[in-house]
Nucleic acid binder design. Structure first.
Ligand code: MN
Ligand code: MN
Ligand code: ZN
Ligand code: ZN
Lengths: 138, 138
DNA sequence: AACTGATCTAGAACAATTCTAAAAACCTTG
DNA sequence: CAAGGTTTTTAGAATTGTTCTAGATCAGTT
């Protein structure tokens, strides 16, 4: 990843059928080049701008949704007015720190969910979200 | 509950320190007189208006939040742009039908969550939300 | 009935997100 | 390597759900 740092990301986008445009590549690097993260659209847009990447907020939204539909990201809903996007697409759960709005991963093997009820009326389970809301003590 | 249908609701509001005003009583009856329900503010406002109850949307929001703070309701977050209020305050979980936006209760005893990880860094667990997202098959 | 704080209200304001339609970029083809 | 068709990006307007504001109304007390 030293002198051709984009090839991996380019391939990844091609695999899911998304053209590797300048803004998708830049956003992908912000998202995937460091470890797992949980970001909102405005956060990511802020980072891009700070990093000197010129990209519109509309494109950030478009890209986050495209990445989510392609399985590169997962959307986590914990607050009514805000969407988080999670670069960790492995099966896992979350602590949500109500006050700060921080999400913390819980590896799937640290939680045992047994005996799930069957989905109602021939519906199909898409995802199981476990969110543990915590409050930091004063 | 036949000829003095409001006394039960009045007492319930008094217990949590909320004055039994005309609009709070009317909304409480819409919420609690039939079985358990999951409603949004605008849904409830619509119902009130349809039933001939004159109440502003701001009051519906105020009331839902006051009821939630008082423990008469519980808020359920499943979609980024919308808040559901749940009249079932017993410990339980939810199916969420993505397409229709319907919530279906899962009694707590139908799910086994074992071995929860300890909350991070001296934080305190406030609530454990399990949401099973389902898609109805065509 | 008068008083006083609580509550209600219309409408403005707000925050996050989505939409629009025109410009720019991308990729294939000639 | 230019032209052409398609996809993508963009600024700004629009939309949605919710919250705020400040004046009017109401509930409970005297
Ligand atoms: Mn945000
Ligand atoms: Mn709604
Ligand atoms: Zn995560
Ligand atoms: Zn419920």
């Amino acid at each position: 990843m030293a002198d051709r740092p984009y090839t991996a990301v380019i391939d990844r986008l091609r695999e899911v059928g998304l053209r590797p445009t300048r803004q998708r590549l830049a956003l992908a690097r912000l998202l995937f080049d460091t470890g797992d993260r949980h970001v909102t659209a405005e956060q990511l847009h802020g980072e891009a701008v700070t990093t000197g990447i010129s990209v519109s907020l509309a494109t950030v939204y478009n890209t986050l949704h495209q990445f989510t539909e392609s399985g590169l990201l997962r959307e986590v809903v914990v607050e009514a007015g805000r969407s988080y996007f999670d670069t960790n697409i492995a099966n896992h759960h979350h602590f949500f720190e109500t006050k700060s709005g921080h999400l913390i991963d819980i590896p799937a093997d640290q939680v045992t969910i047994g005996s799930l009820p069957t989905a109602p009326n021939g519906a199909e389970i898409e995802q199981v979200d476990l969110i543990i809301r915590v409050r930091r003590r004063a």
